[in-house]
């Protein structure tokens, strides 16, 4: 790298020594390198199969490159189911998330212990992956879209509450002071001094949660939560890759369309 500083004139004052690189940064980089090596080593990481077994992958990819388009329409009911699952879960999950976000912000929750309990509950909720919730609810209510909906609801509460409570923390405190000075109760205060301020952001998170739910549909279905993912799972276990590929391409289009739709709606909210 050419990083030399050109020195034109003779230095009059003694040149300062190059500052020593900061110790925490160096330690951090070394630790990161060691951890990377250790992680790769302990799982036997190697890219060699990429060269050796490429032909295995190519066979699958070839099948993928000739998708069975009509299959997309044959499973139209699964598409409807996927979108319906995502909608129901978003409404309930993001709705409850709003409630929890008020409890998880110091601005709106004046009870110390309830605030801490809510924060704790939400971080535990967020620490489990969506798949774990699907597995739990499949065990509880059986295979089907109900399990998928319930799992997504729990998953969505965590995300919506976190994003929204961060937004609440950052609102203008003036109106809060005003309604406090008028003797308003906790709920009215949250509804009128806080909600109008966070509404555009919240609606944006609402749409984001919906997008996330559509993307999760594959995972949900594979674990038994209904929708298009279930179809992928069945076709995959039959090695019907041409059907799987048609669905993946269609899912890609659906995700893009929903992305466009939510961008359009977001622009309208602001």
């Amino acid at each position: 790298m050419t990083s030399q500083v050109t020195t034109a004139s003779a230095p009059v004052t003694p040149r300062p020594k190059k500052p020593a690189p900061s110790i925490p940064v160096i330690v951090g980089l070394v630790l990161a390198a060691v951890f990377t090596w250790w992680a790769g080593h302990s799982m036997g990481f190697s890219l060699r199969p990429l060269i050796e077994n490429w032909s295995n992958g190519w066979v699958v990819i070839e099948q993928f490159l000739s998708p069975n388009w009509p299959f997309i329409w044959r499973v139209w009911d699964a598409w409807v189911e996927t979108i319906a699952i995502a909608i129901v879960a978003t409404f309930i999950g993001a709705g409850l998330g709003l409630l929890f976000s008020f409890m998880a912000s110091r601005v709106t929750n004046r009870s110390g212990w309830l605030y801490r309990a809510t924060r704790w509950f939400l971080s535990v909720l967020r620490s489990l992956p969506d798949i774990a919730y699907v597995l739990i609810f499949v065990a509880l209510v059986g295979v089907g879209s109900l399990a998928g909906i319930l799992a997504l609801i729990l998953f969505n509460i965590g995300i919506a509450a976190k994003l929204t409570s961060e937004t609440i923390d950052a609102i203008d405190r003036g109106p809060l002071e005003a309604v406090d000075a008028a003797g308003s109760g906790t709920w009215s205060r949250a509804r009128w001094a806080v909600l109008p301020q966070i509404l555009p952001n919240y609606l944006s998170y609402f749409l984001y949660v919906f997008e996330l739910n559509i993307r999760s549909s594959v995972v949900i279905g594979i674990a038994g939560g209904g929708g298009i993912g279930q179809v992928i799972n069945v076709q995959f276990s039959r090695f019907a890759y041409e059907n799987v590929s048609a669905i993946v391409v269609a899912l890609f289009v659906v995700v893009l369309l929903i992305d466009q739709l939510s961008q359009y709606l977001r622009r309208r909210f602001v």
Binding site: S184, W187, W192, P196
Partner: peptide, 27 residues
């Protein structure tokens, strides 16, 4: 001023009365 800017003037004025309005109606 400490008004809630994203809502109507009427809603802002009614915020002075929130103490005497039952919660469910306020919601």
């Amino acid at each position: 001023f400490n008004l809630v800017k994203r809502t109507s003037v009427m809603n802002n004025v009614i915020m002075g009365q929130l103490h005497d309005i039952p919660s469910w109606r306020a919601m």
